[in-house]
C-alpha cells in the first residue's frame, strides 16, 4: 500500500470528520436572539378620507432627512445609468419619491353594482423579514429590533437593489447625493435610496410616527404585531372586510383592512412607477432560506464521500 492508513491517521481523520459534522450542526443549533416584538401598524381603510393630513405631516417631520443633491451631477458611465432627480419636483404628492415617502392611493371599486371609493395610505410595508435590508450588498439598509427598516443615507450608494428586490418596489432614488460622490462617482453608485423609516427617531423618543399622530380620522394604530393582527381580524369580522399584509412577503408590519376585496382594488387601480400595487406577494426570502438544511447535510456528504474513498482503498489493499 503506497499510502498506509495508520490508526493515528484514521483517528485524526475521524476527529476531523466529527468536527465537520459538528460544525454543520451549527446551522440547526443557531437560534434567534430574543427580541422585542415588532411594531406593526393597522390601517382601517374604511375610515380614510384622503385628506392628506398624514402626507403633509410626513413631509414636515422628515424634511431634514430629504436629499440635498449637489449639482451638476457627475457624468456617469456607461451612459445607460439613469439619473434620478426629484429635487425640482419636491411638491409631488401623488406618488412615492425621495421627497414624498407616503401618498394616498385612491381607487373607485365596483362591488355588487355599487361604486365604493377606497383611499389607501401607501408607503413602505416594513416587512417582518425585509428583502431590501437582507439583500443590501453594503449593509446600508437596516432593520431595528422593533421591526422598522431604514436605509442609512450616509452609507447607501444608490444601486437600487433594494427597490428591485422589494415586492412593491418602494424605495426611490435621488442622484447627486451620498457616499458614492466620495468614491467613484462616475463608475459606481448613483445616489441614495429613500423610503419611509416609520419616524424611527420619533418612536425612539416615545412619540408616534407623524402620519399616525396627524390623522384626524384615526385610520392608523400602532402596536406589537400580534396585537395588531388580532385587532385586524376583529375589525375584518365587524366590517365584513379583507386583510392585506398579514402573510404577504412572509408577513409585513403594515396591515390593511379594507371593506372591499384587494383583488378588486388591484383590478381598479392604476399602477406605475412610484405607485405600487397591492398584489399577492410570496415570501421573497423563503426559497433561499429553505435550502439551509442542505447546508447542514453537505459536509456530512463530503465526509461520507471521503470515507467511501478510504473504504475503496482499504479493499484494494487487502
Amino acid at each position: 500500500m503506497s499510502e498506509m492508513i495508520s490508526r493515528r491517521a484514521f483517528l485524526k481523520g475521524s476527529a476531523a470528520a466529527a468536527c465537520t459534522v459538528a460544525a454543520s450542526g451549527l446551522t440547526a443549533a443557531a437560534a434567534p436572539a430574543p427580541s422585542e416584538p415588532q411594531l406593526c401598524t393597522l390601517l382601517d381603510l374604511s375610515k380614510c378620507t384622503a385628506c392628506e393630513e398624514c402626507v403633509d405631516a410626513c413631509k414636515e417631520a422628515n424634511a431634514d432627512k430629504y436629499p440635498q443633491p449637489e449639482k451638476p451631477f457627475p457624468q456617469m458611465y456607461p451612459a445607460r445609468v439613469p439619473v434620478a432627480d426629484w429635487s425640482e419636483k419636491q411638491g409631488i404628492q401623488d406618488r412615492l419619491t425621495p421627497y414624498n415617502w407616503l401618498y394616498i392611493q385612491t381607487v373607485d371599486v365596483e362591488v355588487d353594482g355599487e361604486e365604493i371609493e377606497v383611499n389607501i395610505p401607501r408607503r413602505c410595508m416594513h416587512c417582518v423579514n425585509p428583502p431590501c435590508v437582507k439583500l443590501c450588498p453594503w449593509g446600508a439598509a437596516r432593520q431595528f429590533k422593533n421591526g422598522i427598516s431604514r436605509i442609512d443615507s450616509d452609507i447607501c450608494l444608490g444601486g437600487s437593489k433594494c427597490k428591485a428586490v422589494c415586492p412593491w418596489h418602494i424605495p426611490e432614488r435621488q442622484t447627486g447625493v451620498g457616499l458614492y460622490l466620495d468614491i467613484l462617482p462616475s463608475l459606481a453608485g448613483n445616489g441614495v435610496m429613500y423610503k419611509c423609516d416609520r419616524c424611527y427617531n420619533r418612536i425612539a423618543q416615545g412619540e408616534l410616527p407623524a402620519c399616525i399622530e396627524a390623522c384626524p380620522e384615526d385610520v392608523q394604530q400602532i402596536g406589537p404585531r400580534n396585537e395588531m393582527i388580532e385587532k385586524a381580524h376583529i375589525l375584518a369580522k365587524e366590517i365584513d372586510g379583507y386583510i392585506y399584509g398579514e402573510t404577504e412577503n412572509g408577513g409585513t408590519n403594515t396591515i390593511y383592512v379594507s371593506p372591499v376585496p384587494f383583488d378588486a382594488i388591484n383590478k381598479a387601480s392604476e399602477y406605475g412607477k412610484g405607485r405600487p400595487p397591492l398584489k399577492p406577494a410570496a415570501d421573497s426570502m423563503a426559497s433561499a432560506n429553505n435550502i439551509i438544511t442542505a447546508m447542514a447535510i453537505a459536509p456530512i456528504a463530503g465526509v461520507a464521500f471521503a470515507a467511501g474513498k478510504l473504504f475503496k482503498q482499504t479493499q484494494k489493499d487487502t
Binding site: M4, K12, G13, A16, A298, A301, L310
Partner: peptide, 26 residues
C-alpha cells in the same frame, strides 16, 4: 450563491477528511 455554498461545504469537508485520513502522513 446558496447552492454554491452548499457544494463548497461538501467539497471542503471531503478535502479535510481526505487530508487527515489519507495524506497527512505523506
Amino acid at each position: 450563491h446558496y447552492l454554491g455554498a452548499i457544494l463548497l461545504l461538501g467539497v471542503c469537508a471531503y478535502y479535510i477528511t481526505d487530508y487527515f485520513m489519507f495524506n497527512f502522513k505523506n
